[in-house]
């Protein structure tokens, strides 16, 4: 557990430092996410690192199983905007609902269409 969380935090740190030098338009944790996948792939066969690998996988699994709770603190911030919600709540909700439905539909259609055209479903 401790080894796993340390590795995740170190990769986040490396990601943040990289993000700083890239000018900040790619978030640090996202760079850390790509980097940890690359490093795990490169070091996959190294015997000495096997315990660290295992612990990283275990820690990640338990964090991802409880991903939802991490959004609660930011979400409760909605109470700072009760006046806007009272005055324009319906319009805000309509914008969020419409744009999310459209985005979901367009994204999934393009994915399926391009996969079909490039032969991704050939074996089905």
């Amino acid at each position: 557990m401790l080894v796993g969380i340390t590795i995740l935090l170190v990769f986040q740190l490396i990601g943040e430092v990289t993000a700083y030098f890239l000018g900040g338009f790619v978030p640090g944790p996202v760079i850390g996410m790509a980097m940890i996948a690359v490093v795990l792939t490169l070091t996959g066969g190294v015997k000495m690192l096997e315990p660290a690998h295992r612990q990283t996988l275990e820690t990640s699994r338990s964090i991802l199983a409880n991903l939802g709770i991490l959004f609660v603190p930011a979400g409760v911030g909605i109470i700072q905007h009760l006046d806007l919600i009272r005055d324009r709540g319906f319009a805000l909700l309509a914008i969020v609902l419409l744009s999310t439905v459209i985005t979901l539909a367009v994204t999934v259609w393009v994915f399926i269409l391009v996969k079909r055209l490039s032969g991704g479903y050939a074996d089905e």
């Binding site: 996410m33 790509a34 990640s60 991490l70 609660v72 603190p73 930011a74 700072q80």
Partner: peptide, 27 residues
Amino acid sequence: YKTYFEGAQFIHFLLGPATVALGIPLY
């Protein structure tokens, strides 16, 4: 909200390492 966040920030902080953890299923 500020008072609430002083406690909840410990959970909020884990968003960073959780994003890094998304690299594991990718691998």
